[in-house]
Nucleic acid binder design. Structure first.
Lengths: 329, 329
DNA sequence: CTGAAAGCGCTTACAG
DNA sequence: CTGAAAGCGCTTACAG
């Protein structure tokens, strides 16, 4: 491989001078500069970022920790991140925990060892050891999707979104509203969205039958099963259902169609997430768009602020969601 | 930051010895080893991959160049890649050209400057300069999706898949089969899939009306428009349509529904790509699953072979596709 | 305007 | 079994 040394020799200057033209820093005579540039052009020399990083302590790479690599959420988030980071000349080092919590810590260390300039964590479940490790790192850090005290957070308004959807259902004439959630260990999707539902029902003095509340697992099949359970177990049959995820909602729709009830006349269905799917299924699904790309952009900007300024105190940015009215309600 | 030097001092050994226990290489007495390990534990020392890479010329990172970051194809590909690379301790450095050809070359250089151990290129349009740059790089390299002579290629069987789908359409009783394609500059999706269609029609002695062949742009809207054009311009109305992409097919379905024709009775619709969408729209779309994850795994393995063995001659691996029979035909 | 030299944090012959 | 020293490819005070 060709190095700065060789360029220096060929151009008849010192490595210092080559470095200066490379970084346009310090004084270099036009003449010397021209010679150096010519040699670089001829040789196709590309400076080693690695060596540079070792000296300067800046790698211009950002580590991203994802819970799952090929979900729509992950790819929308990465898209938003990349938009900002690419503009500033940062690269993204991708890391996928596959939902295994030990991997989060493993990757935290790995990213540290690679001297990334900052880390973005798309979190699902937060535990104490993870948080401790994050603080040990002492590195620019932003988490998105789950709140971690003391850090920079980009959050979705899970509680309000869920609440607003219930209000919307009620406004549309529904009263007996069932709910398909997920494990509450997932604080945002599991706990907050359920709270929103419960509080909205309470505010409207609407009773909630215990059997109306079922728990699924982020996939279509468990949406189907949850809906089935709701219909089987409830005394008062619901006239609407809110699922915390579009896929869950789609599963519910499948079951409702199967038993030949009509949507939204017999049962209205609400999803959350605004997946691509939601637009094209029949009936088109009314859902919440959490604007994941915005979250990505916001997170990138927050991280950049830390990298450049060094503002490390707790920050919370809540991303605006939109309720997409379609035909399932 | 804490370095190997400090560990050495604290453990009362040389940096050499610390390095040896870090890499379990060479002889180290149990006693010395124990001391070193203890200090590492206490200090939470994490060796710098950067410094290591500078010496060893191995970074354990793989550069991936994607045409678009948040498509289903990209994320399925990355998933496959990650499965293999993660097992071998490689990280993925992600790079997104956003379909701008100049960026491909830019990122090629950037990845080189970061001393990635190899590069995976998910290609769309191939041009001469790009190919030249790739060869200049002299670095383990695999392209997926488009053939580049002299390199390791992971390809989809676009021609055969398209042909088989037409045969299937014919077997199901369709004769007048229209076609929605894309620009033929995209050799795989545009050119090969169209050839497959044309040849299958010819083999079956089926005439093709010029107006049956329309060109879209990878999105739902242009599928809709293409279908509209087909219906408006054709003398003999088609009884089936093959779209080279599921999104195109979904656009076609939208238009067909809009003019109150029934699918598949009046017009059968075939897609390609096996997007998530295809499963859930009504009617469920018959399509081709190109097994993108397999392609990712295959590409990763090919690259690893090059990295370890240094086998640089042309290779072609064609990934098996599956025809998914659903209700749109 | 220019260059010699030190140093970033590692690994690896080499000598003992 | 262990360590001194050189070197990976850069940048950056410092001196001139």
């Amino acid at each position: 491989m060709i190095t700065i040394k060789e360029i220096a020799e060929r151009a008849n200057v010192s490595r210092t001078t080559v470095s200066r033209v490379l970084n346009s820093s310090g004084y270099v005579s036009e003449e010397a500069k021209k010679r150096v540039l010519k040699v670089i052009e001829e040789t196709g020399y590309i400076p080693s970022e690695n060596a540079k990083a070792l000296r300067t302590k800046k790698t211009k790479v950002i580590g991203v920790i994802l819970p799952k690599i090929s979900t729509e959420t992950s790819s929308r988030l990465v898209k938003g991140l990349d938009e900002i980071f690419a503009m500033e000349g940062y690269q993204i080092l991708l890391t996928n925990t596959n939902l295994e919590p030990e991997k989060e810590i493993e990757y935290l260390k790995l990213l540290k060892s690679r001297h990334v300039d900052g880390i973005i964590l798309s979190a699902t479940n937060i535990n104490r050891t993870l948080v401790e490790e994050i603080f040990k790192l002492k590195i620019p850090f932003v988490t998105v999707g789950q709140y971690i005290s003391g850090l920079a957070n980009v959050l979705f308004d899970d509680y309000q979104a869920s609440k607003e959807m219930v209000h919307y259902l009620i406004k549309k004439g529904n009263k007996n509203i069932a709910f398909i959630g997920v494990d509450e260990k997932d604080r945002s999707v599991g706990y907050c969205r359920k709270s929103g539902y419960l509080d909205a029902m309470k505010e409207n003095h609407l009773p909630v039958e215990e059997s109306w509340i079922q728990k699924g697992k982020f996939d279509v099949v468990s949406g189907y099963q949850s809906m089935k359970a709701i219909m089987a177990l409830s005394k008062q049959k619901p006239d609407a259902v809110l699922a915390v995820t579009d896929r869950l909602a789609i599963g519910a729709i499948q079951y409702i169609k199967e038993i030949c009830l009509s949507i939204p006349d017999d049962i209205a269905v609400a999803g959350m997430g605004a997946s691509e799917l939601s637009k094209f299924i029949t009936p088109a699904l009314t859902t919440i768009d959490f604007s994941i790309e915005d979250a990505g952009r916001e997170a990138a900007n927050l991280l950049l602020e830390q990298i450049n300024g060094g503002n490390y105190h707790e920050t919370i940015r809540t991303i605006k969601y939109r309720l997409l009215e379609r035909s399932s309600i």
